[in-house]
Amino acid sequence: MDAARPLYIPVILGTVRRGRLSLPVARLMEAELSRRAGIETELIDITRVPMPIDDAGEAIKDPTFAAQMSRADALVIVSPEYNHAYSGLLKHVLDSCLKEYIHKAVGVVGVSAGPWGGTRGIQDLLPVMRELGLVMIFWDVNFSVVQNVFDASGALRDEAYLPRIDKFLKELVWMAKTLRHGREQIALE
């Protein structure tokens, strides 16, 4: 493995809802990734991924999103919980790729207005991630009562989230490095 090649770990903002409170969460995750040496990141807002809704699956693959997924070593998915599940349009976008994800790491950041921090949406995403070939880490970050976590400018008000994010990203980076080594060096026998 070329250790000098940076890991590319984009953050996917998994909601298109207007006024979404997951946006400051996604920006915070992007900022925390950007501070780490050897990592390149960017925010992928699914609102900006052009997807028709009169078809589905790989037939509607967006070339830019597919290239980002091909390049990625790992993904951070920011997933708000809507009616006890993840957003339908997040699934629509994720389903447009498949081979681009295989044997890559993923961590999910749950967001909710209530007390459970998106845990039900994360649980529902687990079998989807597995079928897409992604490898889920076991640390999550859960933003509960998210309307109280950030101020009106989007700045974090509760510093307790930072060590939780640190634990999450440490595991994600470890998994990304391990899986990159496996993809590139260890043959399927």
């Binding site: 493995m1 070329d2 070593d73 081979k99």
Partner: peptide, 15 residues
């Protein structure tokens, strides 16, 4: 069966 391959030099994926 779709085979997935990765480049050990530059990381490019192909299938």
């Amino acid at each position: 069966i779709e085979e997935m391959h990765a480049c050990p030099a530059c990381g490019t994926g192909a299938s």
